[in-house]
């Protein structure tokens, strides 16, 4: 043996050395079928199925013709795929008064949701910014009132608001509904923005004031660019909330301005004729498509906003 040191090693000693060399090293191996993993993935799978199954039934049913539906196998895939129900739901389903489908409701909803979202977010973000950074006389009182406002049940205020809108002459119009949505979104959105702006370093605001920037310059040039994530959150909240709204839509508008949700209800619950399950399913999916789309698109935007370092100093 060339290595004189190894001469002294006994048989038992050599084993010890080999053990030491072949012992654990590097990354710890992960067992893929541990009890924990089975629990986690099992639960996730069941939850996913629970939510996906109804969706599956809806999609499948909306693609079948009525004779096939009458066979009663709700889980079986369509034998003959037809887009007839979708077309009907969109353009010619009857809602009691007229028979031009959901399309009218869709455009109504668009005309309600976009201005309501834009206006409420614009006002609430300015409110939140003012509350967080500019302590004005009565700002504490204002804030308390807002928080209380966030907890008052809507139902209590419906009748008074109907009267107010009637007196203003905009009861039953889209403008009236937009105003209602803007007002009801205000407390929670203002809170959201205030809390976000409070979390930004105060010294940034002080530095901007020393640089001579005023109320609007600080808001537009300093605060807005740093707040993309919270704007996306507010947008998701408002778009889905207003799009899915049913109560205000029924109460504050006339039939020709009914939002999509109300029209969906009228189609599904219409009493004349046979129940066209395929059309109902297609109409429901169409109505739900917009919030779903918003989640997918803005969810990615949201993540990108954070990853781009928009919030890091």
């Amino acid at each position: 043996m060339a290595n004189p040191g190894s001469l002294a090693i006994t048989v038992a000693g050599a084993d010890a050395v080999r053990d030491e060399l072949s012992g654990p090293r590097g990354r710890r191996p992960q067992r893929s079928f541990s009890g924990r993993n089975i629990m986690i993935y099992g639960t996730l799978l069941i939850a996913a199925l629970y939510y996906l199954l109804p969706l599956y039934v809806m999609v499948v049913t909306s693609l079948k013709g009525m004779p096939e539906i009458r066979l009663g196998n709700i889980f079986s895939p369509p034998v003959e795929i037809t887009f007839e129900p979708w077309a009907k739901a969109w353009a010619s389903a009857c809602t009691g008064l007229n028979c031009d489908g959901l399309s009218r409701g869709f455009w109504n909803s668009v005309r309600i949701t976009i201005p309501s979202t834009v206006i409420s977010i614009a006002i609430a973000s300015i409110n939140g910014y003012a509350l967080a950074n500019w302590r004005f006389k009565g700002s504490e009182v204002f804030f308390t009132i807002l928080i209380v406002g966030a907890f008052i049940p809507y139902q209590v205020m419906i009748y008074p608001i109907v009267i107010v809108l009637r007196e203003m002459g905009i009861y039953g119009t889209l403008t009236g509904l937009v105003i209602v949505h803007t007002i009801f979104g205000m407390p929670i959105l203002t809170l959201l923005f205030r809390n976000y702006f409070v979390s930004l370093p105060e010294e940034l605001f002080k530095a901007a004031r020393i640089d001579g920037a005023g109320f609007w310059t600080i808001y537009l040039k300093i605060m807005l660019p740093m707040s993309l994530p919270i704007f996306v959150v507010a947008m998701i909240l408002q778009i889905t909330g207003i799009w899915n709204d049913f109560l205000f839509g029924v109460v504050f508008t006339r039939p020709e301005y009914y939002p999509m949700t109300v029209q969906l209800n009228n189609i599904v619950n219409s009493v004349q004729g046979v129940k066209e399950y395929n059309v109902n399913m297609a109409a429901t999916i169409l109505t739900g498509a917009v919030p779903l789309f918003v989640y997918f698109v803005s969810g990615r935007l949201f993540v990108r906003g954070i990853a781009a370092g928009a919030v890091k100093g």
Binding site: P201, K206, D211, G212, P225, M226, A310, G313
Partner: peptide, 24 residues
């Protein structure tokens, strides 16, 4: 004024940070 936390405007380049007050 110079602050402990630097308080640089995160979305602006260094150049913009320096010139912001002058532009205002």
């Amino acid at each position: 004024m110079v602050f402990q936390s630097y308080a640089l405007y995160p979305q602006m380049t260094v150049e913009k940070n320096l010139s912001f007050g002058l532009q205002v």
